[in-house]
Amino acid sequence: MQPQILPIPFHFDSNKVGEVWRVPYQKCAADAELWAKEHNIQPAYLDQKRICLLLIDVQNTFCIPEFELFVGGQTGTGAVDDNKRLCEFIYRHLGLITRIIPTLDTHTAMQIFHPIFWINAAGEHPTPAATSITSADIEQGIWTVNPAVANSVANGDYELLKQQANHYVKKLSQDGKYPLTVWPYHSMLGGIGHALVSAVEEAIFFHNIARQSQTQFEMKGENPLTENYSILRPEVLLGFDGQPIANKNTSLIKQLLEFDAVIIAGQAKSHCVAWTIDDLLTEIQQVDVTLTKKIYLLEDCTSPVVVPGVVDYTEQANATFKRFAEMGMHIIKSTDSLFC
C-alpha cells in the first residue's frame, strides 16, 4: 500500500528545534483538529496496521546544546539535526503512526551514577563523565560509597548500601556491560532538562490531537541502585542477596511485540537507543525471531555519544546497528518511503 505522505504544517519552524520554548497547547490542538479535517486523517483506532513510534530520551538534557549531556555526534550538532528530521517525519507520516511512545530518562541526585554517591579518601566526589568506577577501584579504596547518602537511599544501612554498590559494579563486568560511568547530574525530575525538546513535544502533541491517540510516556532511570539505559530493563535486576532491586518493563515489551511495526529513534545511538533495541531483540528471540522484520530503525534520527578528544562511540554504534540489520531489522532514513 502506498502510504499517505502529508505536507509539513505551517507552524513548524526548523530553526527553533535547538531551542527551549513553551508549546501553545490550545492553539496547537485547534490547528491539529483542522489539519485532520483538511487532510482526511482518521482516528488512530481505525488503523488496520498499528504502527508505533518509540522515541528514546528526546529530552533537553541530551538534545539541546549547552545542556548536560548534549549528543553532538561527530558533526557537533547531531541531536538538533536528528530532531529536525524527526519532527518532519512525524508530520509527514501523521496519518500512519498509530501511537507515539516517548521515553523519559528520569533521575534524582542520589543515584549510583551521580557524583554525590561516591567519595575518595579526601572526601572528594568523582569528576563526572571522566570517571568510570571498577571493582578494582573499590577494592583499592580509590572510591567508596558516600556514607551520607545511606540515609536517603538505604534507610541508613551503610553496610547494606556498600554491598549493593560493590555487587553492582562486579555484575556489570560479569555481564560484559559498560563499566559504571559517573555522569553529570542530568534529566533531573522536575527540571527543564527532563522535559521533551519543545519542537518534538509540539509534534507529538499535534499527533495526539490529530489522530486522537493518547501519547504514552514511559519513565526510566528512577531506581537509585542501577543505571537504566534501556527502557525495557535496568542494567542489573538482582542485588547481592538475590533479591530484586528493579524489574523489567514487561508490559511495554508485550505491547511493542503486538504492534504491526515499531519505528525507533532518539538518543543516544550508542547508549540508550542501542540498549533498548538490544533488549527488544532478546525478547523477540525468545518468542519468534521473525518478529525482527517489523522493527524499523530511523538511523538519521539518532547520533552516538562523541566527546572530542575524549571518546567517540561512532564505530561501536554503527557496528551494533549493523548487527541489528543482520538479525532482520530494517535500517531506514526519515525520508524513505514507509512500507510498514
Rank of each mutant, 00 (worst) to 15 (best):
L252H: 01
Q243H: 15
V236W: 06
D288Q: 06
I41T: 08
F205V: 01
Q316I: 09
A150N: 03
I56A: 05
S135C: 09
K37P: 00
T181K: 15
L55E: 06
T98C: 06
K333L: 14
Q4L: 15
G73K: 04
A319E: 06
I231Q: 05
L256A: 07
P102C: 15
A261S: 14
I64Y: 05
F62T: 04
N318C: 02
E258L: 14
I284K: 05
L53A: 04
Q2E: 11
L180H: 02
F67D: 06
T276H: 02
K254S: 13
L280V: 03
V273I: 06
Y178H: 15
D260I: 11
L196Q: 00
G18E: 09
D31I: 06
L55C: 13
S198M: 04
D288F: 08
T215G: 00
E68D: 13
R99C: 14
F70G: 04
A36H: 02
E68H: 12
I41Y: 12
I116V: 15
W275A: 08
F339P: 04
K84F: 05
V58T: 07
F205M: 07
V273Q: 05
V262W: 11
E258W: 12
S152R: 14
D278K: 12
L280T: 03
V273K: 02
L252N: 00
R50M: 07
I56G: 03
C272D: 03
I56K: 04
L161I: 02
H167R: 11
T108E: 12
A36R: 02
T292D: 01
L69D: 05
A130W: 07
R211E: 02
Y185I: 10
G328Y: 12
I8D: 13
L291G: 00
A195P: 02
A30K: 10
T134I: 05
M188W: 08
A265S: 14
Q243A: 14
A122P: 09
K49Y: 14
V305G: 00
L172Y: 03
Q163G: 13
L172P: 00
Y91L: 12
C63I: 08
G328T: 09
S337H: 15
A261T: 12
A154H: 09
G239R: 09
D336C: 10
P115V: 02
V17Q: 00
T290M: 08
W35V: 02
V287M: 08
Y158D: 01
E33K: 11
V200I: 04
Q285F: 12
Q59N: 09
P24D: 06
Y25C: 02
H93A: 08
M329S: 00
I112K: 08
Y45T: 12
E68R: 13
E66R: 15
A29S: 08
N151S: 13
L104V: 04
L189P: 01
A165E: 03
V287L: 11
F240T: 05
V311Q: 04
N83H: 12
T131R: 11
L297N: 01
L298F: 01
N223C: 14
I101D: 04
K322Y: 04
I138P: 01
T314A: 02
N223Y: 12
C87I: 02
E222W: 13
K220Y: 06
I263S: 05
V153I: 09
C340T: 11
R50F: 07
A30I: 10
F12R: 05
S230T: 01
I8Q: 13
T98G: 03
